[in-house]
Every structure is written in structure tokens, then in C-alpha cells.
Amino acid sequence: MKPKTILLLAVLIVIVAAVTYTLTATEDPEDYIESIEDERERQFKFIRFNVDSPLTEEQKNNFTELKFYPIDPKYKVIARMVPIENKKVRNVPMTDGTTERYIEHSYAEFTIDNIPLRLLLLQDVNESDKRNFFVAFADDTSTEETYGGGRYINARQTGKNSITIDFNLAYNPYCAYNTDYACPIPPRENLLNIPIYAGEKNYEE
């Protein structure tokens, strides 16, 4: 076999391997939807049955479902992490007037429908896994279709400078169900000026 032919075959093998990797590494849409549905079912069971649920026993007796937007993959984004050079601890206000301490770690920059967006990534001062982050946000659905005090996302760093933010997994704070609970208020940096039609809707008794 001629050297040129060997080289062409080698290149072809590399291309095929790359394409195969891309196809297998990409999440299957059906698997993704199923994973979100499973998580929503887990949320429902926790709220309905768990002893640590924010619902009172009377609320549990009348509780039949959590309401969500339809699952939309466009709301799962891979954001670029922009580190905050001078990290500091922020006393995040709670709904009862107290505060909780979080580290201002970095910003997550991404686009939805070609609109550039940015969220402040906070990290609990006691977080042991430094790839986990807390995102509290509000958007143009807040007080209308979703809880007026904002919603939360547990986000995880997925690359050296990237993080996955899945708005389909946005959930309500405990105070959305029971005002006896105190919840972190979204920082001003995380008040998005677009509607996010994803994740959990407002709780209605």
C-alpha cells in the first residue's frame, strides 16, 4: 500500500472516530427528557411525602401536583465562567430579614434566543465540592406564572471554564409553599429581563 494511501486512511479513521465520539457524547433527547421527568417526579414525592417537606400536613392532604413548563432543551445552556478576581463573601438577604453567607465566585455568560445573559454564581461558604454553585434568579415570568421571589438552580461546573445551567430544573424555594420558611433573595445581578419559560411554575393551593 502506498504511503499516500496509508495517510488518507489514517485521516479517514480519525475523522470517523471524531464523528462517532461526537454522536455518542451528545445527550440523547429522549434520555434528557426522561431524566428531567424523573427529577420532577422525585420533587413531587419529596414535597408530598417527605417529613422535611415545607408543606404542612393540611397542605399535603390537598396536594396533587407540581406545575412545570414543558421541557425545552434550549433552556439547558453551557455557560462560560468569568471569574471574579477579588472574590468576597456576600451576605445574601433572606425573606425574613436575616442573611446567609455566600462567596461571589464568578459570572456565567450565555445566550438564549441570541440574547446575551449573565448570572452571578454564588457558592455556599461551607460547600465542600468546589464545582457546585447556587443560582438564585428572577425573570419576566416572576409574580405572573412563577414565584415572585424568584427560583433556584443547582449548577455544576462541567469544564475548566464552563458550567451547565439547566433552567428546566429551576425550582421554587421553600417559602413559595410556606411563608414560615426563610429563603435567599436573588441578587440584583440575577434579575433577567426576559421570560424564562422553563422549570417550575408558581405553587397554588
Score class of each variant (00 low, 15 high):
Pro116Arg: 09
Val89Phe: 12
Asn86Glu: 15
Pro70Asn: 08
Leu121Arg: 05
Tyr75Asn: 01
Asp124Ser: 11
Pro70Trp: 00
Asn126Lys: 02
Asn86Gly: 11
Ser128Gly: 04
Ala138Ile: 04
Thr98Gly: 13
Asn114Leu: 08
Arg118Thr: 14
Thr111Gly: 11
Asp124Trp: 10
Lys130Cys: 13
Ile84Thr: 00
Thr141Asp: 01
Asn86Leu: 12
Phe68Glu: 06
Ile103Val: 05
Ser128Ala: 15
Asp72Gln: 08
Phe133Thr: 08
Arg101Leu: 07
Val92Gln: 15
Glu127Cys: 03
Met94Arg: 13
Ile71Phe: 01
Arg101Asp: 15
Ala138Cys: 12
Phe137Met: 00
Glu109Leu: 08
Val135Phe: 02
Ile84Lys: 07
Asp139Phe: 08
Ser106Cys: 14
Tyr69Ile: 03
Arg131Cys: 01
Thr141Gly: 00
Asp140Ile: 10
Leu122Cys: 09
Tyr69Val: 12
Arg80Leu: 07
Ala136Asp: 10
Tyr75Leu: 11
Glu109Asp: 10
His105Cys: 00
Leu120Ala: 12
Ala136Gln: 03
Lys74Arg: 07
Glu127Lys: 06
Thr111Leu: 00
Val89Trp: 07
Tyr75Ala: 06
Ser128Phe: 05
Tyr75Asp: 05
Asp72Val: 04
Asn91Arg: 09
His105Val: 14
Tyr102Trp: 08
Leu122Met: 12
Leu121Asp: 14
Lys74Tyr: 01
Val89Thr: 13
Lys87Thr: 01
Thr98Pro: 04
Phe68Arg: 14
Ala79Val: 11
Pro70Phe: 07
Leu121Glu: 12
Arg101Asn: 07
Glu127Trp: 12
Ser106Gln: 06
Asn126Ile: 07
Tyr107Lys: 02
Arg90Pro: 00
Lys88His: 08
Thr98Leu: 14
Ala108Glu: 03
Ile115Gln: 04
Arg118Met: 13
Asp72Met: 00
Pro73Lys: 03
Glu100Cys: 10
Asn114Met: 10
Ser106Trp: 04
Lys130Gly: 13
Leu122Arg: 01
Phe133Pro: 13
Glu104Ser: 06
Asn126Thr: 00
Met94Trp: 12
Thr141Gln: 01
Gly97His: 14
Ala136Gly: 00
Phe68Asp: 04
Ile84Leu: 13
Glu85Arg: 11
Pro70Cys: 04
Pro93Glu: 09
Phe134Pro: 12
Asn126Arg: 08
Lys88Trp: 09
Ile71Ser: 08
Asn86Arg: 02
Arg131Phe: 05
Lys87Gly: 02
Glu127Val: 02
Lys130Trp: 04
Arg101Gln: 13
Asn126Ala: 05
Thr141Glu: 09
Leu119Val: 04
Arg131Leu: 10
Val135Ala: 06
Lys88Met: 03
Pro83Gly: 08
Ile103Leu: 07
Ile103Tyr: 03
Gln123Tyr: 05
Asp124Met: 13
Ile84Glu: 11
Phe137Ile: 12
Asp113Glu: 14
Thr95Ser: 10
Ala136Leu: 09
Asp113Ile: 09
Val125Asp: 10
Leu122Phe: 10
Leu119Tyr: 05
Ser142Tyr: 09
Ile115Arg: 10
Arg131Ala: 04
Ile103Asn: 01
Thr111Lys: 07
Asp140Arg: 02
Leu117Phe: 11
Phe134Ser: 00
Thr141Leu: 11
Thr99Val: 15
